[in-house]
Simulated scan of single mutants.
Amino acid sequence: MLKKNLLTSATLIGMGFVPLAQAADQFLDNRWYVAPFASYVETGGDRKAADGWGGGLGVGKIIDEHFNAELRGFYQGFGGTNGPWDLAGGTADLQYYFFRDKFSPYAVMGLGAMNTCASANCGVGFIGEAGLGVSYEVADNLLIRSDVRYRYNNNFNAHVQSGTDEFHDMTVNLGVVIPFGEKPKYVAKAEPYIAPPVDDCSTRDSDADGVNDCLDKCPGTIKGATVDHNGCAVRLILKGQHFKYDSAELTEKAQGILDDVAGSLIAYPQKNDIEIQGHASSEGTDSYNMKLSQRRAHSVLDYLKMKGVTNNLSAKGYGETQPIADNATEAGKSENRRVELIWIEE
């Protein structure tokens, strides 16, 4: 009954502390250690012996976050109806830690050999152990450790005890673990560095004005404008049917274009003065064309002002004095009927 209670308690201890696990980012401890211990032995009924005491020493190494390997030697003694019993042996243990923390539960399995003497009868046999335990870290170089183990012993016909060569014992071990050297510190796992994408402005021209963004000092250039080497507008020609016939009244199409012009001038202001020039084809008299081009230039100026443009604007009519195409053709005349915005250099 005591065996069952001890195993049950050890199992509950191990399971109860599993939720307390705190996974280290990176486990670095791989020190060697020594582990002296004392033992209480509850003997099986097959030995016909009393319970007893003993002790031993383990030498081990921390392998990784979960495993320790350890060699243990021990001596245990107790009385019995067939004389005093003396057990001396050793095991190679593998310990599995559910997690490493100040309080760390583990499971253990060990294989080894043991010399058993009952009075004058002695024999060497095989032992196998399995159990559960816990360790408590007092300091970096000192831990208290205890485990409960079931031990199976087979003496292979040595006849140490008449009637059987198989024995079943329970051991409770309590001792300390003394690691050698300084305890390594846990370090966070380094996340791989991913370099941000290179923003190569030399290959980008956001406002499509022909000047890359690295050199463009005037972003948001008005579409269709001629720019200088800094990407700043110097000239914008408004061609097409922008006025009603023989009138300075803007068409809806012209108003839409000027809305875009005004929006760009407000969003990306160039503080230069702007001259609005009106030009005409050769149809009609010089005097009439001069006055019409002047009125059309003023019409554009008034519209831009109404839209909130804050640049210093001036309007001037040039009539038919500055053609850009041949007035002998209808296509040429259409080219010459235009309004130009000229940015005055400061």
Rank of each mutant, 00 (worst) to 15 (best):
I344E: 05
D273G: 01
F27M: 09
E129D: 14
W32H: 05
D199N: 14
S293H: 05
V198E: 10
V198S: 07
V198C: 04
E70T: 12
T321G: 00
L7D: 09
N5D: 12
F243N: 02
S146K: 08
P184M: 11
I127W: 05
A69D: 01
G308F: 05
N289P: 00
S119W: 10
L236H: 03
P197E: 15
N230C: 04
A118V: 14
S9L: 15
A225W: 00
N30C: 05
T43G: 08
V227E: 02
R149S: 13
D51G: 10
V138Y: 10
G83M: 06
R100C: 13
E249A: 11
L2I: 15
Q22N: 11
H279T: 05
L142H: 06
N5G: 15
A10M: 06
R72A: 13
G77R: 02
G60P: 04
D209C: 12
R235S: 05
Y318L: 11
T8N: 06
E166Q: 15
D200S: 09
K61P: 01
H279C: 02
F98G: 08
S247Y: 05
K333M: 14
D86R: 15
C122M: 14
T43E: 09
E65I: 08
W53G: 13
G89S: 05
G231K: 01
S9Q: 06
